[in-house]
Nucleic acid binder design. Structure first.
Lengths: 209, 209, 209, 209
DNA sequence: AATGAATGAGATTTCATTCAT
DNA sequence: CATGAATGAAATCTCATTCAT
């Protein structure tokens, strides 16, 4: 951890990190296309344009590549959650949504890989996703509860409300991650986030003036 | 189709169907636990309490078992969609939601299998899920558009609205399918559907009287 | 352990045992020729005249084949030691020697394999050889000590004496196991054992009458 | 052979020899621990504290390192045999035994490596061990024959006698080489050699005076 | 029709050797 | 010279499928 000042060693470490990232990028692409279990190490190596054996100079095995991808993918999620802090205003929610959309789509293959494997593998779900998603849900629920107590929101169940917000978000993101829709442009991202917050706050039904 | 009324042949056909269903049930369970690609034919055979070779008397291979599961799983979805017809009132939406929740949870393993493999495999997505989901979404969008034109709904984008309804629905169903939450009791199903329609129609924010 | 009386299952168990023995015989031959580490599973399969994959229907892996050979090889050793009991007379020693020579040479390949791997691998030495050899040495030492106390043997160190008897025995057996000499005929075995006991008891030097 | 007296070249040759010896020492240690076939070039390089590639500046490959170790290990054996000349008296045999014990234990790892690989590999057995052991055995046999003809030894078969002497010697040395016993101290070596010659000449049985 | 042993293609992984730096 | 990353052939092991019983 404490970086050696030896510059040769430093360069070597950079080379290693770079190679690892190449492998992870290639692997995430193939994993995203075929799923972890159906991907062969040969395919990863071919995509990364190296020999199969070379993978093993940088990772202990196929699963370790997956875990490294999961690590790297959850890191920005983690910081985003930290930064989000408590969501207080409509604008803060909007900002968080746009940010989350942007993050997921900036790393489509690895996000898809993480989601897929978390869906299939209990360990990955627990270690990389469950606690983070729970934290987000809890924050949303707290936000709702606050406003319900406040009298600014109708008296809905905060847990269910939070879950549904996440579902609405998922409905926007998942098709892009899955590759059904093309990923939205930043402009579209903004509109989508607006629509969602709008729908969320005021519902679909016209207010009888 | 019913070529022979020969009762011996009929009994034979019944036996075959029964055997196939046993295999599909067993396979769906194991697929749901480990994913299609990571499931071995031996595991399927063990779960179905028969020899590996027997599988091949009833299916052409592992993939054909998966396709049969997909077929069987989408059939009730299909009829549900047909029956739903046009959704006109709050109660019709409510009924459809409850029914959909009930169906998914009545066949958890095969539903999970279908979703997982549709997420991973373009062919399955296309052949078994995409058109059906699209039809539901279109119906929802038409419903929204109708009421917007009507003046009973606020002027929201029907496509996005439909997508979000589906997301809210997914947020209720997916955790149960994934096995994160225990599946809701019928009573809870009802409450969830109520909450969802409620939130959907009137939003989260208190109406200023 | 409690044999089922189901005769079909019994036949199946016999088939399995038979196949396992075929594999172990083939493996012991190749191990004896090239050593465990340099032997490939393909060579074992070829020698056993079956496909590589078939090995894995009967053993969990290459090392398990080795351990099974070690088990089977040490079993007759074990019973021979039990039966030997305490060695009291010249004739009993003679008998034990002849028996030991016969046993080692009846299973040359597996004996060679066991010795080789015990020489290389601490686990195998401990689990399969060390305690057995120690028991033999202790019996020999006790025999010597008895006669020394008796006054029939000269006052030599029983431990060292025992060790040397084993060395003499080894000098007779090892070359045959290694394949340097042809294995001795039963007739030769008898003569060798005689010579050895003779040399052992009375030494090489002529007694001055 | 000494083509150049050029001192720069001489220094270079010394450096090369030194490097080779470092590699051989490291390799002999690892070979002794895991056997030649299970040792990787990386392990040798690590033990020698150099890069894998460096090995190939000094040896043509892994096997050549083994052969060099065998060469170096048999050299002192060879000179010891030369010097031993004909064994005539009890004291000469004693001296040879002590010397042989000392030599084997001074180079435990390479001795163990040589023995192990000679046991496994016919080429090494022939090229490095068989002829030397045969020479020792022949000398011992000639010694015995001489004394038998002389009337000082009992009329035993010289070949078998020689073989057994070697066995007794093996029984003393091999456990130390294998690492089962700690190697004996020089003091213990002396006692062992005494015991052995003693036992050898006069046998185990008390002479009836 | 049911069985499960046999198969062999293909997956993951290891490692002696090469070679650019 | 020294290095150690890259290589790819070969090793171990897996598993969908076939087929004799």
């Amino acid at each position: 951890m404490l970086e050696t000042l030896n510059p040769i060693e430093r360069r070597r470490q950079r080379r290693i990190k770079k190679r690892q990232r190449e492998i992870m990028t290639a692997a995430a692409e193939v994993f995203a296309e075929k799923g972890y279990a159906s991907t062969t190490t040969k395919e990863i190596a071919d995509r990364a344009d190296m020999a199969e054996g070379t993978l093993y100079n940088y990772f202990d095995g196929k699963r370790e590549i997956l875990l490294a991808i999961a690590d790297e993918t959850t890191a920005p999620m983690e910081t985003a959650i930290q930064e989000a802090g408590s969501l207080k205003s409509r604008d803060e929610i909007l900002a968080m949504l746009e940010k989350a959309l942007a993050i997921s789509e900036a790393h489509l293959p690895s996000t898809r890989t993480l989601l897929t494997e978390a869906w299939m593998d209990d360990d990955i779900l627990q270690d990389y996703l469950a606690t983070r998603l729970k934290r987000i849900r809890d924050q949303l629920a707290a936000y709702i509860k606050h406003h319900v107590d406040n009298g600014t929101f109708r008296p809905i169940n905060p847990e269910i409300g939070a879950q549904m917000i996440m579902g609405m978000f998922g409905a926007l993101v998942l098709p892009a991650i899955r590759g059904v829709f093309d990923p939205p442009t930043p402009q579209e991202c903004h509109e989508l986030a607006e629509s969602m917050v709008d729908l969320l706050l005021d519902g679909i039904r016209l207010r009888q003036a």
